[in-house]
Design a protein around this nucleic acid. Structure first.
Lengths: 342, 342
DNA sequence: TTGAAAGCGCTAACAA
DNA sequence: TTGTTAGCGCTTTCAA
């Protein structure tokens, strides 16, 4: 805030004087549930309105030992899934009267330092949906008494509420979709970088295949982006053919789309005739006609809502036991599997 | 922040005592550019580290009359362009030691109320990249002495620095791309909702066509999403044919992609043989092989960096004249025009 | 229901 | 270069 010499922002003192009450009373007028008579209250509110007064959140937070700021730690903000998730988080928070402090944690940034700086705002809570889940985040927040909610960053950690997808079901769903589409020779495409949810469902998929007596060819990508998928498409194409792979589970939609794009347009491979493909997430682009990706849907908006709810719950009851909300998923058959959707 | 009865967070007082100095000196140790001897400074930093001390941003902001919080007002956070923009903004801000306060302003929310609440944090600035640019935002911020930067929300408003695309060049580039690809019968697809940049370039395109002696068929969509494009694709298809439209400029890539998707896959229309198509933005998906959309690139990351820079500049020199940075664009020929890229 | 007084943790004048 | 003294604007006991 730059002081441009203009009129100073009015304080509760100015409102108090205008309304003929004390500053404490003004404070009460702006505190939901405070004991104050309706008449006095509306008189104050009116005075405040004409003066253009609004509570100074800094002072309030300083005094009351907590602001209504909630930190959101997110990485890869520009990936479709994450963008939607952050939007859900921000809107949910705003709706509850909290303000989201956005922390982008893509590689370069020092997450630890970010958390420290955020803690300096007496944040009411921190929601983590980053890829790299530094356990120190939980630690630092716990020390400061700040509740933490992890989204798909489990496993259920002591000291944090958690929102997760059912890993086992995720992997199984992928296996089933391919198997039910007639695939007998399986492959898996998964990023080299370990991540709770992506690696987790990949391993669950592997386990399912093995349990059913199938071998799996595993291919590793550099990251989970579209470009990463595209980059390994040739390696995949090379393994298509008699006695080779028939169906592949790509651990994220973006990866699947990258593979699909190159397979079809550069290699002229017919999906699903020559190779079947299943992704994961059901991002908006998966449904675009040019792709029609068969995939497994997770409802990020629902997860975001749960994260907000968990944050508020812990604010109300700091001592409640840590909770883990496990979310399900939906198989979405489209056009990259033999079994096809509508 | 919930007080879980644990150890209290250390204050500058504790650090001062541990380091054997006064609180002001501790403050100086954490203030870049403050006059303090290196030895004392490192002694304090060390004491702070062992105590787990970090500056309380609330108290600092309260006292110094400005926090290092910067509000970002954004809408449609989950659209590819906006997501990238917000990411750039957040990272740029973080890099400069500022923290982004994210305000999602999609229809429902009362922007005015949001701004008020944000102003309560003594934010150092506000960056607006929302679709609906309430002039009240500028007004409210100006009254509070908070600098405002508008991204593509011009025209240059008094009271705000501005980052914009060259509207005239945008529209002209679209016209030229189609014309140079041999189009003689033009069409325009633009959202019904007025927006500075989208409506602006649409009108510039119209003007260019008219000036060159061409008529233009204008088609209106409900919004600028993929779905909106898809929804008007049939209406466009109906106008393809002898003596009908040969090329269309879609005011956003998402719109163009929606049209293209349905035209090709539901209507079996050959683009660019039967119809040429040019989009705008060059979002990631435009380059995906399944689409290969010819488009006009705007560099959102560069714009975001400029917005951050303008915010900082005004912080340093509150009285400098308001500045407008105009950005150029790049024609990207791909596969939806007769003239094609690499 | 209201008011008076005491800080929340920090920075910014000023003095040393 | 360092310490001292005042607040920043608010909420929160505690009395009235």
């Amino acid at each position: 805030m730059v002081d441009r010499g203009g009129t100073k922002t009015p304080t509760s003192f100015d409102v108090a004087r205008a309304a003929g009450v004390s500053r404490s009373t003004v404070s009460r007028a702006f505190t939901p549930g405070a004991r104050i008579s309706p008449e006095v209250r509306s008189r104050i509110l009116q005075a405040a309105d004409t003066l253009g007064y609004h509570v100074n959140a800094l002072a309030r937070g300083l005094q009351s030992r907590h602001s209504n700021l909630v930190g959101i730690v997110a990485s890869r903000l520009d990936s479709p899934l994450r963008a939607l998730q952050v939007r859900g988080l921000a809107q949910g928070l705003l709706r509850e009267g909290m303000n989201p402090l956005l922390l982008v944690a893509d590689g370069g940034e020092d997450v630890q330092a970010l958390i420290q700086s955020v803690l300096g705002y007496n944040v009411a809570g921190v929601i983590v949906t980053s890829d790299t889940p530094p356990p120190e985040v939980t630690l630092a927040c716990n020390r400061a008494g700040v509740p933490v909610v992890m989204i798909n960053r489990g496993p259920a950690t002591e000291g944090a509420d958690t929102v997760v997808l059912d890993l086992e079901k995720s992997g199984r769903a992928a296996f089933e979709m391919l198997r039910d589409s007639g695939v007998r020779r399986f492959a898996l495409l998964s990023p080299a970088q370990k991540t709770y949810s992506v690696t987790g469902r990949s391993e669950a998929f592997l386990a399912c295949c093995k349990a059913a007596g199938f071998d799996v060819v595993t291919i590793t990508s550099d990251g989970q982006s579209f470009a990463a998928g595209r980059a390994v498409a040739d390696a995949i194409a090379a393994r298509i053919g008699p006695d080779q792979i028939e169906g592949i589970f790509c651990a994220t939609d973006l990866l699947a789309l990258g593979v699909l794009d190159r397979l079809r347009h550069a290699r002229g491979i017919d999906v699903p005739q020559q190779l079947q493909l299943v992704g994961f997430d059901d991002i908006e682009q998966a449904a675009w006609d040019a792709y029609g990706l068969s995939t497994i849907r997770q409802d990020v908006l629902e997860q975001a809502a749960a994260a907000v709810e968990l944050t508020l719950l812990r604010l109300e009851q700091p001592d409640r036991p840590y909770e883990t909300r496990v979310f399900g998923l939906t198989k979405v058959f489209r056009k990259t599997t033999a079994v096809q959707g509508p």
